[in-house]
Amino acid sequence: MRARCAGRAVAVAVASGLLAALAACAGPGAGAGPGTGAPVPTTTDAGPTGTVVVLAAASLTDVLATVVEDLERAHPGLEVRTSLGASSTLAAQVVAGAPADVLVTASAATMSTVTDALGCTPAVVARNTLQIAVPAGNPADVTGLADLADPDLTVALCDPSAPCGAVAAQVLMSAGVTAAPDTLEQDARATLTKVRLGEVDAALVYRTDVLAAGPDVEGLDVPAEHSVATDYLALALPDAPHPDAARAVVAHLRSPAGAAALRAAGFGTP
């Protein structure tokens, strides 16, 4: 699932199997964009202009600021508006017909609710892994995943129904740890907030969140053998009001500059 939406995807579709998959993907936006059939996606055209709306997972908050700055510098006529939230909320908005151009989710499953409905294929732009987040100084002397099972420690996890909670469940299962959480938060940021405030001794959150939290929070790596990567998927929406700009945004996220910004924020890149 490395291609983009509708007709544009043809350019990068090389394997015939993938091509077949894309044939089924021809959504309502197929053939609508002016760029349809163009051989190579590029961000150095005369340049997309207008206001492009990007719906993105909240964990991208900080890195998106950099990306938007880069984008707007590269395309003087372009204005990027971002709306950040839980991936599932954003996906629901898109399915409900919100006038957005680009959707970036922190979960393949969430993205599939959109792609199933619209018939498109998203692109992986980043990877994230979980870290054990502890308050600065690690007051409870947390050393590893096993400590999350200690009933004497106050532990926060994302709710299993949230993407970060699903990943946390996989990690914990892989390590054979039955965690004893005191709260199951809505999303990674809410979970991290509990760490930052010092109200919990440990939490499982994304590495990028730990990095963004600054000196209040320290991160302990999850052993590589238990680590589970989360794919961040970007999709230029088939019904995007500004299809050129939408493609430009996705392309930038996958460009060396975009990857550098993502890596600086702690993400892995494909």
């Binding site: 599932s88 926060a156 709710d159 959480p181 199951l184 509990k194």
Partner: peptide, 22 residues
């Protein structure tokens, strides 16, 4: 209070959580 089933997850919290998933 956080959000933990049976302890602190009241109806409004459950509604908010379910809004994302179901």
């Amino acid at each position: 209070a956080g959000s933990f089933p049976g302890t602190t997850r009241t109806m409004p919290l459950a509604v908010h959580l379910a809004l994302d998933t179901d």
